[in-house]
Design a protein around this nucleic acid. Sequence first.
DNA 1: GTTTTCTTGTTAAACGATTAAGCATATATT
DNA 2: AATATATGCTTAATCGTTTAACAAGAAAAC
Lengths: 343, 343
Amino acid sequence: MNKKVSIKDIAQSVGVSTALVSYVLNNKEKEARVGKEIAQVIRDTAAEMGYQPNQIAKSLKTGKSHTFGLIVADISNPFFANLARNVEDEAKNFNYTVIFASADESPKKSQNLINILTERQVDGFIIAPAENSQDQIASILKSNIPLVLIDRYFKELETNYVVTNNYDASYNAVSHLIKAGHKNIGMIAYRTDLVHMLDRRRGYMDALKDNKQLKAKTPLIKTVDFDFTQDDVEAGIKELLTRNPSMDALFFATNTLTLKGLKALNNLNCKVPDDIAVVCFDESEAFDFFYSPLTYIEQPLLEMGKKAVQILIKNITDKKSANTQLSIPSRLVVRQSCGSGDR
Amino acid sequence: MNKKVSIKDIAQSVGVSTALVSYVLNNKEKEARVGKEIAQVIRDTAAEMGYQPNQIAKSLKTGKSHTFGLIVADISNPFFANLARNVEDEAKNFNYTVIFASADESPKKSQNLINILTERQVDGFIIAPAENSQDQIASILKSNIPLVLIDRYFKELETNYVVTNNYDASYNAVSHLIKAGHKNIGMIAYRTDLVHMLDRRRGYMDALKDNKQLKAKTPLIKTVDFDFTQDDVEAGIKELLTRNPSMDALFFATNTLTLKGLKALNNLNCKVPDDIAVVCFDESEAFDFFYSPLTYIEQPLLEMGKKAVQILIKNITDKKSANTQLSIPSRLVVRQSCGSGDR
DNA sequence: GTTTTCTTGTTAAACGATTAAGCATATATT
DNA sequence: AATATATGCTTAATCGTTTAACAAGAAAAC
């Protein structure tokens, strides 16, 4: 029972060929010169029979699935969850369905997801690429599947991408700390060669340099792995404090680093901003509730999501279209975690 | 160029029929009595040519897409984002791909998503149903598509579902407040008839009743719409305080209500827990950073996600299997927002 | 009164797989 | 030696669409 109704059923019921039904239901009556009355009859019985087109069959025939894959590090990370939501909404505007997947910064998982999605014939990819996934990305490029990188990209690869201006954002944030009078600014970052992280480090370094604050031989940066724990950050901060006991500010490179970092600071009995001032990348609901509301870098998630989709669709529609490389500025939201310089 | 390699290409290259290739590549050599040597040749050239099966074609033929839809209210809400991640992981264990979608608590959007996903031939649904979506759910049931409701369900519908025990969790949370000595406990909830919310209200009411705390003719509950603003909550709290100036505790029914609620309390200069104690449903990173770390109800997201997938798969595999209705207990995480009773 | 041109359809191949059924040969059984 | 069974592979239909190519009757053109 409850067999789904197909175009054939409608054709039979109306007494015409399936071709006619297909034309009508795809609004190709004009091109196919279908009679006005019969078109209406077809439409009516289709509605009456509760016809729902089989997209799978459609896709097989047309070679377009009207679907694309969004691969991020972790959909449960608020940064990616918000990005995903924006991507979802914009995709719907173009009648596209998106399949999300989490690669956990692992090239192995990433490759696996790419395979699965490719087999499902996605029309394109939006990917926040994991470290060491250049080859995978390159091979997507080679197989001519439309692709937009997001959040990060690879310098050596000619691709579309949409990122925030990590360098400027970091430069500004650290400059802000300097203007607030801090003289020994440390940084906690991820141990990775992904450009977004390198850019954030460069921004930090250059801000120090340009303000003649680069004293130590080794920069006051501590990195942790992607799967870091609370203890790792705490140890990191401790180490920085050992290397430079007069460290008076910290720049955190992401939201997750910040969250654990703040707890670490609490454990270490460091007061923000009096003992240590804080600025961080990304936002979090939590930042509002920290006793000293955090000054943070707000990424343009809505625009990034929208643009990524638009570029992807353009690429799907016209595979020969030139690459678009977008770097959208972030905004420094100044609150109270930097001390006197705030406000 | 770069045409995808199909089973036909392999067949041609090896010099056999497509049937043989299909059998081998699906590990049906035994049943199909394929020669050992030729099987190996087929496998090798398939690998060599970089064959990737076209799942679309496979789906069309087999009628199984190995895909299911997950419809939640909003994927950017941490509650749903975490749930989604757990669903994704468990689905992968069964080699299923999941398509997420956000319905924003709107029956209209929900119906639209159901249609889209049905046309895409998903093998099943996991849905956190929106209000007034009974008909949609019923029609999924009628068309015999496997379905598991999550987070909420409809009393009048015989479906699979996986929820937390909202009644008990609320009852316990409010009892905890009472034990802590609070005598005028208010509640902020959503204005909806969805069972999960009604159960949370019942839990609240019964806890008060059982402790002889139900004095006012109208319960000290204020509800807001799903698309509430910060101001709505603030107005709500104010109203409760007007109705009962000695209100000394608040029970928030969800994470989003709590987040705005805490800001409202700040605006109103209410100190937690001294002026107003607080307990809330769901968790949030933010709760750790509130000056008085919140006591909250931790939902069993991992288990809910896993179980929902398992039940769905069981239902897909055996459409005649009986409905499973799971109510998994939540845990009250006691911290400092309830005053003396904590610890 | 042919021929041409519209109109309004139909036919059938194709997309890339799966799989029941069939067809040779070779080997085993009696 | 005749029959039965195994073995190894092919044929062809099918899933639900799309769409180029063709057909046939009516109207228009000459």
